[in-house]
Design a binder for these strands. Sequence first.
DNA 1: ATTTATTGTATCATTGCGGTACAATAATAC
DNA 2: GTATTATTGTACCGCAATGATACAATAAAT
Lengths: 240, 240
Amino acid sequence: MSTKTRGYDYLPGISIDCVIFGFHDNQLKILLLNFKNTDWLAVPGGFIKESENLEEAAQRILEERTGLTNIYLEQFYVFGDRDRRDNEMLKSLMKAVDGVELSPDHYLMTRFLSIGYYALIDFTKANPTPDYTSDSCQWYDIDTIPTLIYDHSAMVKKALETLRFFLDEKLIGFNLLPEVFTMNDLQNMYETILDKKLLRTNFQRKMLSLGILERLDKKMTGAANKAPYLYRFVGKESNV
Amino acid sequence: MSTKTRGYDYLPGISIDCVIFGFHDNQLKILLLNFKNTDWLAVPGGFIKESENLEEAAQRILEERTGLTNIYLEQFYVFGDRDRRDNEMLKSLMKAVDGVELSPDHYLMTRFLSIGYYALIDFTKANPTPDYTSDSCQWYDIDTIPTLIYDHSAMVKKALETLRFFLDEKLIGFNLLPEVFTMNDLQNMYETILDKKLLRTNFQRKMLSLGILERLDKKMTGAANKAPYLYRFVGKESNV
DNA sequence: ATTTATTGTATCATTGCGGTACAATAATAC
DNA sequence: GTATTATTGTACCGCAATGATACAATAAAT
């Protein structure tokens, strides 16, 4: 069962799927592929090479499918229900995408597990482009996600729960804002991801008490009101 | 790559390993196997059948290796570093355990990922017995775990971090104590798992305020001091 | 009856946080 | 220039949770 004898370079029966959340301006989105010549949507996924560690595979897969590079991905769950994939859908998919007719004993027709990874990035700074498998690679609003293939809807749900659970804990989101930002920017990010309103005064107190913000000059917005301070994260190396 | 053509009934290149924590009387232990005719220790593991969901596989594997039945297991991480297993060690292992000489193209000699599951049980209520692969299946003190094969030491470390992180969150441990117990018993369990001292009076206040304890009669310990109350968990069905 | 060790509970101080009040201020309207 | 307006920064109040100490209650031994 070495690479050579199997005739392909990927680990059998296992895939990686990446749930990519995108944030900007009070909007939380998710990156989905539209498989070529079909109506089916999915999160970007792929297979693991014999030579790669899992994290490397996840990054490569994301880059191959979407063009996004250097994205920090975090593992969150393995999806392995026996019937999580529909083989008839898979056959139609491969026919539409690659033009090949999968025989029943093709290795893709066997059971596959999938390791879920997720990331959170600024969708205005990412320029996703589909590879040959897809007609499009676009951001979709988190509130109006269409039905996805296989168990990808469950993957997105679980990834979002994980993201919200760890938002405060791990202070992710350091890379979602500009180098300098206002307290309002920061609060908007939290409110968007957590999907709930926070009290401005208490949020400010909390954030300042964490000691992770450096106050800079004021920002003259041009609006007829008091100018907010700009802030910068200190010790960004503590991120990840 | 169906079951038949592969000649075995298990998913290729993927395994499950179970980190079983055992608690009793201020002691936190872990269940380890000693592979037959070797000095090597490992957590109980095995392979996934084509017909099983992952959770079913984890339970079956644990039962086959240790005899423990009906243990709730929680997935915590996938270990997939390219070189996480040492094939020379694997060959020696199979030779010692099964008496077979693995050829270089044996499917076990390929890369394997492993899905980590963990559980927490009362080690006085479990009666682990080794299967044919092992000379022993015993509890080891958490402070003095010997070196384990492959990356199993890292698995135990990560599982323990996860257990501690979720101790309060999920109120696990309902099944670790006798039907009735004293507040001291409960505190000892927390202190042992968290590996830190808690203040008796505040711990009592906190636990009572949760509304999950029912106070019963006093327990005459025979000691020359005030007798503690016994407690029982109410609404045990909320566990898991 | 006194002593001893442990348990149950009250109390106080501190912290964290939801919520309100209000002063500060950059631009606009007059 | 002065008043107005909208937003920001911060102080403050009150409550709940929690760390810490004090002390009464009590089962058994002396």
